[in-house]
Design a binder for these strands. Structure first.
Lengths: 339, 339
DNA sequence: AGGGTTAATGCATTCGTATGCATAAGGAAT
DNA sequence: ATTCCTTATGCATACGAATGCATTAACCCT
């Protein structure tokens, strides 16, 4: 009771059985009713719980998933993290979490530490992987799933929303709304999400006979997005609509337009974001945006990684999940609009 | 190179030394220049990295800190998580993260799983601990630090901001501003933070000859806070100022006041929050609030838990860190106000 | 009652690293 | 050169649970 460490051996002695018997009871292997009862009783009395680390050593399965996440100030990620955590907990897995910005060096270090802990798999949220690192994980036999970021030819599985399609939807929506000078503050060019949304958007505009007024890389950063907004609005022909690469930046754009430049949204400028984080629905922003279906993305992520853990031979898959455009008050709504 | 698992034994063979020598090189114990070089070389060639789990088994130190966090939609916690993660990583520790709401049962389960993983310590962010659980951790010899939540008589260390003092500051500020009907949408009554802020606030009002117009428990929840706002404003003598128990709720209050009730802030109602999350500074809200100095709170948390890990005999300490009132545009600023 | 089959259990070993102990090697001092 | 001390290194064992193998108990059938 007062003893700090209770081992299966202790339980065995007290129950009058062998250590193996105790192990079998707790690992669900076969045992007679009688011994199960004896062991359970002794274990309860002693407060025994199996040591997960020792178990991990011998089985080679730590039941730990490494999670590397880049941004935590963008509300999208905490939400995703929460869902991931719940979902993995339910499956008996646990999350070893690391934060690493867009710093390749830091990412490298972090991933290696994850490997040291013998994680069964790694989920990266919006972080890139060098091919070097990829190799590392491959030889270590650790499956990787990229969440909200793809990487061509990396051989990793990835789960994203249908970003190209999403960009196109925004283009359709804004052109249908009669906008003639449409600008784009893009997500970071170094990310597949940023590039895909941009591509879908320009393609969508082209399909409607328009070209973007301007495209500026917002780096997924508030300050950069605010600066881009100023640049755009300082033009002699300022935009009448701005598609912003994610909600997090869109909020900065809206703040800048309203508080700093004294403009009205959507009367003077329409703003559309991407993600549909909870904050987008709050009254102060009421942002029209493309929804990334977090729940389904998380589900797919968990399924994918668990499947790959179970069968390492399973080929990588790139899953894209479609999300709707959610129309709110930040952008002019075309007459008779039905998405 | 292609081999999946490289052990210290493999390195030893290749370097022509014993396994102990390899161990000593990597654990920083003494070894001659010559062997260090040989071992390092062999290890590099094989891509060897020590197995943290095995190391944890033998040393009894996993270098893992368990983190249990309740709310992730309140921006305060992701930020704190990020800082905690960075700070602990720097000290060679890693975070096993769990989410658990205000559900005591879930908390229990989660903590037990943490113990199973032999974590060196546990940090709880805004989650309560039953005395039962407390006992559990104590016998397991695992130190606990409560972040942003205190618990009298629990014997745990806790790090909070000076909540009573903070509540008082708000009272002074609002009375100085000439407000006469001041209401409070409190943080959850079941939490020390909620209670302390409330107490400081009522004491502060009393010191200025006022009593709260009304106090409603907002449960740290947006919907509850919005409902409370409606209740307050439906009175025949609606408040001219509302102190809200944290920023997260304050945003909901502001949304309700402005979008739903068509009121102006601060002309019709002043709103003051608590936390000073980044979002509070964004243009759309521009919320006057009491800052919780996250950085210093995190520093103190890390220091406290590491100290307790190093010396388990060290007594629990309750640390309170003072934070300033940050005046912005959501509340009338008293003439000549200097905090 | 005896042979055969199945279920239960214990023994011994294993996972990969750290560490106490004993021994060997190297160096300094006389 | 001998002794003494320091520093390195290898050997063997330990951490705590899981598991293949061998043994034993239990049961069933004829």
């Amino acid at each position: 009771m007062i003893n700090v460490k209770v081992t299966s051996q202790d339980v065995a002695s007290r129950a009058g059985v062998s250590q193996s018997a105790v192990s079998r009871v707790f690992s669900g292997a076969s045992a007679s009713k009688a011994t199960i009862a004896k062991v359970r009783k002794a274990a309860d009395e002693l407060g025994y719980r199996p040591n997960s680390l020792a178990r991990a050593m011998i089985t080679g399965k730590s039941k730990i998933i490494g999670l590397v996440v880049a941004y935590l100030d963008n509300q999208f990620y905490p939400i995703a993290l929460q869902r991931l955590s719940e979902s993995l907990q339910k499956q008996g897995y646990h999350i070893l979490i690391f934060t690493a910005g867009n710093d390749a060096e830091a990412t490298q270090k972090v991933i290696e530490e994850l490997i040291d802990y013998q994680v069964d798999g790694i989920i990266t949220a919006s972080v890139g992987m060098s091919s070097n690192l990829t190799q590392h994980c491959a030889t270590a036999g650790i499956p990787i799933v990229m969440f909200n970021r793809g990487q061509d030819g990396s051989g990793h599985s990835s789960i994203t929303s249908a970003n190209v399609e999403g960009g196109r939807k925004v283009a359709e929506f804004l052109t249908a709304g009669g906008h003639k000078r449409i600008a784009h503050i893009a997500g970071w060019e170094g990310s597949s999400t940023g590039r895909d949304r941009r591509r879908g958007f320009t393609e969508g505009l082209a399909a409607n006979g328009q070209t973007p007024l301007d495209i500026i890389d917002g780096m997924f950063d508030r300050a950069a997005a605010a600066a881009a907004t100023r640049t755009l609005m300082a033009r002699s022909d300022p935009p009448d609509a701005i598609f912003v690469g994610n909600d997090h930046m869109a909020f900065a754009v809206m703040d800048t337009l309203r508080q700093e430049l004294g403009l009205r949204i959507p009367q003077d400028v329409s703003v559309v974001g991407y993600d549909d984080v909870p904050l987008a629905a709050w009254g102060a922003y009421d942002l029209t945006t493309v929804r990334q279906p977090v729940n389904r993305m998380v589900e797919a992520t968990v399924e994918t990684i668990l499947a790959k853990i179970e069968d390492p031979a399973r080929p990588a898959q790139k899953i894209e999940i479609d999300g709707p455009l959610i129309t709110r008050g930040s952008a002019r709504i075309p007459k008779g609009w039905t998405p």
